[in-house]
Design a protein around this nucleic acid. Structure first.
Lengths: 349, 349
DNA sequence: CTGAAAGCGCTTACAG
DNA sequence: CTGAAAGCGCTTACAG
């Protein structure tokens, strides 16, 4: 039995390419060629080899072949937080696409802290991932520059970096912001406010810009004092809504740069006894599962998450295989999903 | 310059252990020893070596050391779906714990399909992960048995397998079910129904058993006809609620084996104009972010997610390092979180 | 069509 | 305290 030496105290060692070569009476080179469809291997031998592989339950070691310069079929996904529904949905979209090509994805929740970003990137490089998809904020531009210099393939998802011309797939945030603004304007709202993320977040910046543009086109007044900057958290949305609704000239509609903020705003309104949507219309952004679950359900701008994940993965694969792939920026169109949190302004001017 | 040969057409190759050895004027064995704190290396040399490492930006290759039998510092996490908030929160808990020890986690969404489970397991083994945390349903017992036979360290999370005595960390689902039952009973409910998952899901089975026990102890009648089996989806919960509330003797309270079902039930009730909680109390299970976001907010049994993730990871590490670690089953206590979806029965008998 | 041999970047006895 | 050498499980020219 060629397997005899394979048993050690009752535990079977994994079969290696040597085991199958010996059993098949060929060299390891031939086994390797058979597996990879390289070189010429007679079909009888090939079949024979495959049979032995099955019999020995042989699984080639990705580790070993990676050491010879082949791919690890593993990639890193940097996101702020996997427990945030938006990023969880993004992760699923990427995972599904990756899995079709035998790729695995390592999750890296950064909490938007550069320190964590750097730690994760270092780990991922030591583990020789084939590439990274970056959907988290990275403040220090040197971090991305370093990645470029070390020739690590990356694509940005839902974020961008103005300084570096790096591949990216994003939703058309500007248009999404416009959709929100137009929707509320058409409902007759004239006093609106915005809950936005930090200006460093390119997507929020664009959404806000689009929103303002929609109002400007309709000569609806909007002042930067009507913008409240929040972190990406429910409580922050609530806090902001409480503040805005406490003002003398309180808004009749709120545009929130993500669903979490919108939900917080709904909670704030409820706490003050302000009815949504009758007294306050709210529109969010992202269209995560949360938007379907609130009461009333949230009107929001849907990001094409599945499409974004798919494109990001494919872009990364292109960069891996074509050494001189041109830089690309893929922009996907968002879509307004009208649910119950918006209605006509009750006191149109 | 020792780095001279390291530049190829403008791209810098990664430094290897040979580069730092040469630069430091020592052998690679010494560099290896210095890095791993093995053998004896004079402190002057050690310091010198570390300096060179920094200068060359040397990152040891996990791939290469894994090939020599060391760990890959990567583990697989099998869950039904990363975009389900409960599992996303579980993933984050595990990721955080893993990250503290330099571990990375690969996400594997199985959709509870054995076919996907097998594919993922095979991929993970080829990639030589150090172990797996399994928080998904696995119908075919041969799959887990195979893992055991091949000596792959695994720990089950939130799921169990009666057949195999495999390590597991779970919430005390039985007690959780009792908490729900007791809460509703104390509110005066006498006609209750349950939305449960498939009987194959050990956690749901236990929750149901605990719930029934709580009612039995109080002589509250409960019939198995009051159980509706659902998949783990909002729509399923809605469908079930619609059916239950259409019955002549409709229930005044619902216990749902997870938050998603509870939310569906709330939506079903609303569709029929049944007010929650005045006419229908609803309690969920899990305490995901969704429970805070519904209106009314959901009363639910909280699983100690962070604790479960931590324990699961630590258990796995124990199995990795101690070759004869005893089997363990860690049971964590859940906690009832009372919010707005439950209140006293309006027509107590 | 097939195989012997070198090599990927490390670790680990084993000498000295 | 330090280094030469073998080896992990593969792939890839290169001969034949």
């Amino acid at each position: 039995m060629s397997q005899a030496c394979n048993f050690i105290r009752g535990t079977m060692m994994k079969a290696t390419i040597y085991d199958v070569a010996k059993e098949a009476g060929v060299s390891i080179a031939t086994v390797s060629n058979a597996i990879n469809g390289k070189g010429k291997v007679s079909s009888k031998k090939r079949e024979q080899i495959f049979e032995i592989m099955k019999k020995l339950n042989y699984q080639p070691s990705v580790i070993a072949s990676a050491l010879m310069g082949k791919k690890t079929y593993t990639l890193g996904l940097l996101i702020p937080d996997i427990s945030n529904p938006f990023f969880a949905e993004v992760a699923r979209a990427i995972e599904d696409q990756a899995h079709l090509s035998g790729y695995s994805v390592i999750i890296c929740s950064t909490d938007n802290k550069d320190e964590r970003v750097e730690r994760y990137i270092s780990l991922l490089e030591q583990k020789s991932v084939d590439g990274m998809i970056i959907a988290t904020g990275v403040d220090n531009p040197d971090i991305l520059a370093g990645l470029e210099a070390r020739n690590v393939p990356i694509v940005m998802l839902s974020r961008e970096n103005d300084a570096l011309s790096v591949d990216a797939v994003v939703a058309d945030d500007y248009v999404g912001g416009m959709m929100a603004g137009r929707h509320l304007a058409e409902l007759g709202h004239r006093r609106m406010a915005v809950l936005s993320e930090n200006r460093k977040v390119s997507s929020s910046r664009e959404r806000l810009r689009g929103f303002k543009q929609a109002l400007a086109e309709r000569q609806i007044p909007f002042d930067d004092a009507d913008i409240v900057i929040c972190e990406h958290k429910v409580e922050e949305g609530k806090r902001a809504a409480l503040a805005l609704l406490g003002r003398p000239e309180k808004p009749t509609a709120l545009f929130c740069c993500n669903d979490l903020l919108a939900i917080g705003a709904m909670q704030g309104a409820k706490e003050l006894g302000v009815r949504v949507p009758e007294e306050l219309s709210i529109v969010g952004f992202d269209n995560t599962i949360l938007a379907e679950v609130t009461d009333p359900p949230l009107t929001t701008v849907a990001q094409p998450i599945a499409g974004m994940g798919k494109q990001a993965f494919q872009l990364l694969i292109e960069k891996l295989t074509e050494d001189d792939a041109a830089r690309q920026r893929i922009v996907l169109r968002p879509e307004l999903v009208v649910r119950g949190s918006t209605c006509a302004a009750s006191f149109p001017r």
